[in-house]
Amino acid sequence: MTYKYQDEYDKLSEMCPPKHFTKQDISPVYRWLFDEDDSRNFLPQYHRNPRRFNNVDDQLKCTSMGLSFFKDLKGAEERHNELSKVIPNIAKAIGTHTSKGFILESDGVSGDFGHHSHFTHHACETDVFKERFKIVK
């Protein structure tokens, strides 16, 4: 499987995506987006301008080249609320709306579900998500 940012993954000292990431059909999934058609919507943090980094190691660089999704709506909303408590401006960095869509096995590999049902996905191609994800809130 070749990933969208394969060339950059190859330069990292850590295996990226991590070995335990797997191909999965996941539906529904939720992701925070900016307005419809915003170019940042499916751009990993590492490729956004400005990058939000402070001296990351290669493992974190890898994570930051993945996309964040949530398995359930409640988890997505709760995490957004929790982050907003610490950083009132957080929506400017991570998105202002919640969108709903799905991920197919052929899209890439996903990590384990963590707190708030959050997981990271490393995609082969991100353009497909633009059509699949619709803002729900």
């Binding site: 939000r52 990351v56 974190l60 982050l83 610490v86 950083i87």
Partner: peptide
């Protein structure tokens, strides 16, 4: 705190004083 990048990080100087570095705006 980390979400697609660092949000709140802990730093230390050569004298072991600690510092928080919090993302606040962009």
């Amino acid at each position: 705190i980390y979400h697609e990048g660092p949000i709140l990080s802990l730093f230390i100087d050569d004298h072991s004083n600690m510092f928080l570095n919090k993302w606040v705006d962009c």
